[in-house]
């Protein structure tokens, strides 16, 4: 286990007993990644804020939701953020199409690069590994994975959009996920 993961566990333990300092530290560690993810998925700062807010408040109110036996806190929490972001996008997309938004994100206002750099030093190694793993995927696998994960699209929507059979989307997704798992476990 890496130092960062061990510290997360300790912070989560403290947060579980109501320690606000631990909450603030976890916020410092993960707010940038969470907001960056939520923004990439939703394409709107206002929605991204809601996602990050909801995820952190859920963590505060139900810290038991994280079970250390099942994996790292980081993966748990960022999966939670992703889950909420996709939920929100699906709800929103019923109101209006978001394809243009996703293709051309509005400029981010208020970005603090100094903070972003501080965050990077903590998550930098993991981030690099994830990006290398993604880059190592065959393009057709990476495409369906990104459409699902960052585009918030269902496999059925992806099949329609790419004009390929649903079974092919499933096969590519499965292959991509297995490869990522293997690559990340190797490095982690």
């Amino acid at each position: 286990m890496r130092d960062g993961d061990r510290e997360d566990l300790e912070l989560h333990r403290r947060l579980s007993s109501g320690d606000r300092g631990a909450f603030d530290e976890l916020y410092r560690r993960y707010a940038g990644s969470a907001y960056g993810l939520a923004y990439r998925v939703t394409g709107q700062q206002i929605l991204a804020q809601d996602v990050v807010h909801d995820a952190f408040m859920a963590l505060w109110r139900t810290p038991e939701a994280y079970d250390p036996a099942r994996g790292s806190f980081r993966a748990f929490f960022l999966a939670l953020v992703h889950h909420r972001a996709v939920d929100l996008v699906r709800r929103e997309s019923r109101l209006r199409a978001r394809s243009e938004r996703a293709a051309n994100l509005e400029p981010v206002v208020g970005e603090d690069h100094a903070d972003a750099i501080a965050e990077e030093s903590f998550l930098g190694v993991q981030r690099k590994e994830v990006r290398e793993a993604l880059a190592g995927l065959p393009p057709e696998q990476r495409q369906v994975l990104e459409m699902a994960y960052f585009g918030g699209k269902t496999q059925v929507q992806i099949a329609e959009e790419l004009g390929i059979p649903l079974g092919t989307v499933k096969t590519r997704t499965f292959a991509a996920m297995r490869k990522l798992r293997a690559m990340l476990e190797e490095t982690g």
Binding site: G36, A48, G71, H82, Y149
Partner: peptide, 19 residues
């Protein structure tokens, strides 16, 4: 394992400091 991957994939997004 897949849920862990789904969490880690978040790191591909560029981090942005929230307001």
């Amino acid at each position: 394992a897949f849920q862990a991957v789904a969490g880690e994939l978040a790191l591909d997004a560029e981090p942005v400091t929230p307001p």
